[in-house]
């Protein structure tokens, strides 16, 4: 972990309220793993006090990319930053997704992305591609114009399926329904592992579907946090066994089986 001043190489709108920022951040790029995140100080001064956590969307050749959604004051200020400006970035933070050792033969995993939750899964798909593993990717979006990263996943060799809430493309409804359909049709490898990131209600339904069908599932959680390094204790996640973990330090990726979904 390091706190670095990173130069913005580009910061552009992708679609809707989604933006992509690319930073010159050699140390973080070198050490980042899929599922990890960074804490970015979006504004100078103290009015917007906390840093904002963003999952790492891509890390290569000394650069890191974050795909983010403008949802409030912090991200709004960030979206106005221009290339050449600097931001404070802390990372890489947390633990990433669990991957089997490269040499292990394992069934194609299923990556399930909802909205901005797509961001870390691209990093994961590209890492899997390096290991010659081609996952199934299910992308959920509100409407077809907001589907994120379809091309990136395809480029990584993934079998991409789409679900839209308004039925404008692909499966009609939530991505959890699409997963049920994939399972029902048996169009996945036995013992496939599921990696999921998206809004809480979506991850809850995905986790319960996986539990029902005996699929291992990892979810990447998002919590409000001040520090990102395990000091403020603001991002507590309760496990089924009553244990308390921190989203920042012990997560943000958790084994869905262990999570208490009622929280």
């Amino acid at each position: 972990m390091k706190d670095i001043k990173a130069t913005i190489l580009s910061n552009v709108k992708v679609k809707g309220d989604y933006y992509k920022i690319i930073l010159d951040a050699v140390y973080i790029a070198k050490h980042a793993k899929p599922g990890q995140f960074v804490q970015v100080r979006c504004a100078s001064g103290t009015e917007i006090l906390f840093r904002r956590p963003f999952s790492i969307h891509r890390a290569r050749s000394g650069k890191i990319e974050m795909l983010y959604e403008v949802v409030g004051k912090g991200t709004e200020v960030l979206s106005c930053k221009r290339s050449g400006e600097c931001v404070d970035v802390l990372g890489p933070l947390g633990n990433g997704f669990t991957l089997l050792p490269p040499s292990t033969l394992h069934p194609s995993p299923i990556l399930i992305a909802g909205g901005i939750g797509t961001a870390p899964l691209v990093f994961l798909a590209e890492e899997l591609a390096k290991r010659k593993i081609k996952p199934i990717v299910l992308i959920g979006a509100r409407t077809k114009s907001l589907i994120l990263c379809e091309k990136d996943f395809k480029k990584a060799g993934a079998d991409v399926k789409i679900a839209t809430d308004d039925a404008s493309r692909g499966y009609k409804g939530f991505v959890s329904g699409l997963l049920e359909e994939v399972i029902k049709k048996g169009k996945y490898s036995q013992g496939a592992k599921v990696y999921c990131c998206g809004p809480d209600p979506m991850m809850k339904s995905i986790a319960s579907i996986c539990l029902k069908h005996g699929l291992k599932c990892e979810v990447s959680l998002e919590e409000t946090m001040a520090c990102g390094i395990g000091a403020c204790l603001g991002c507590v996640v309760k496990l089924k066994n009553g244990e308390q973990k921190l989203a920042c330090k012990d997560g943000p990726v958790f084994d869905a089986e262990k999570l208490s979904l009622e929280q």
Binding site: E47, L49, V236
Partner: peptide, 19 residues
């Protein structure tokens, strides 16, 4: 165990916590 979540919240130039 501390308090239930949410425990922290950003305010203008500050933060509110109930850990």
């Amino acid at each position: 165990q501390g308090n239930p979540m949410p425990r922290i919240c950003e305010t203008a130039s500050g933060m509110l916590n109930a850990i």
